[in-house]
Structures are given as C-alpha cells and as structure tokens.
Simulated scan of single mutants.
Amino acid sequence: MALDTALLEILACPDTHHAPLTLDEAAATLTCTECGLIFPIRDGIPVLLLDEATRPAGDGR
C-alpha cells in the first residue's frame, strides 16, 4: 500500500488545526503531527473522519 506523495502533501487532519499527517505504511495509518489522532487507511483510501480516528496508546484524553 502506498499513497501518492502529492496526495500525502495535501492531506491534513480534519480537526480545527488542519495539521499535516504522517504515513505509517506498515500499520496502514495516517497520524496527525499536532494532536496525534491516528486515521486508518482502508483499501488504499484514507478515512479522515474524526469518528473513525483513534488516539495513541497511553494518551489519556
């Protein structure tokens, strides 16, 4: 699974800060560089819905 680098450059966290996302190909996820929310990638499609996001382990928010 690989996302086009041009697509990755324009994707942003859907939360109010719209921070860039980093790709974890092994886990098939995108992670917000500001809030740490983790968004799944399903069948090669990023699912950038706040309801579908998870928090990193140990994040008490």
Results as ranks from 00 to 15, higher is better:
F39G: 02
D43L: 06
P20W: 02
I45P: 02
I38W: 07
T5A: 13
L3P: 10
E9C: 12
A6F: 03
T16S: 13
L8V: 07
T22L: 12
G60P: 12
T5K: 14
G60F: 12
C13Y: 06
A53T: 08
A27R: 14
D4M: 02
A57P: 10
D59M: 06
D51A: 13
D15M: 03
A28M: 14
E34N: 15
L50K: 01
G60R: 15
T31G: 01
A57W: 08
T22V: 15
P14Q: 07
A26P: 01
E34P: 07
L8M: 07
T29S: 03
L23D: 10
L11F: 03
T54Q: 10
L11H: 12
H17Q: 15
C13F: 07
I10V: 15
E9L: 11
G60I: 13
D59V: 06
A12D: 01
I41M: 06
L8I: 13
G36I: 02
L50H: 00
C32I: 04
C35F: 04
A6N: 09
P46C: 03
T29M: 04
G44K: 02
A2H: 15
G44R: 08
T54C: 02
T29Y: 07
L37R: 15
L8K: 11
D24R: 09
R61N: 08
A26G: 13
P14K: 05
D59C: 11
D43E: 15
R42F: 12
T29K: 00
D24V: 02
G60M: 11
P40A: 08
E52Y: 06
G44H: 00
P40K: 06
L21T: 04
R42P: 11
T33F: 08
L23A: 09
A19E: 05
G44S: 03
D24Y: 00
C32L: 02
D4Y: 08
P40T: 09
P56S: 10
G60W: 12
T5W: 03
D59I: 01
T33H: 09
E52Q: 12
D4Q: 11
C13A: 11
R55W: 05
C35D: 07
L48E: 00
I41C: 07
T31A: 10
I41P: 11
I45V: 15
P40Y: 10
D59K: 14
H18D: 00
I38K: 07
L11A: 06
L50V: 05
C32V: 03
D24H: 06
L37W: 11
H17T: 08
L50A: 03
P46N: 04
R55N: 02
L49R: 04
A26D: 12
C32E: 02
P40S: 09
T31L: 01
L3H: 04
R55V: 07
P46R: 09
T16H: 15
C35A: 10
L21G: 01
A28C: 10
T29I: 05
P40Q: 06
L11D: 01
L50Y: 01
A53D: 01
A53E: 03
L21E: 01
T16N: 13
C35G: 05
P56Q: 06
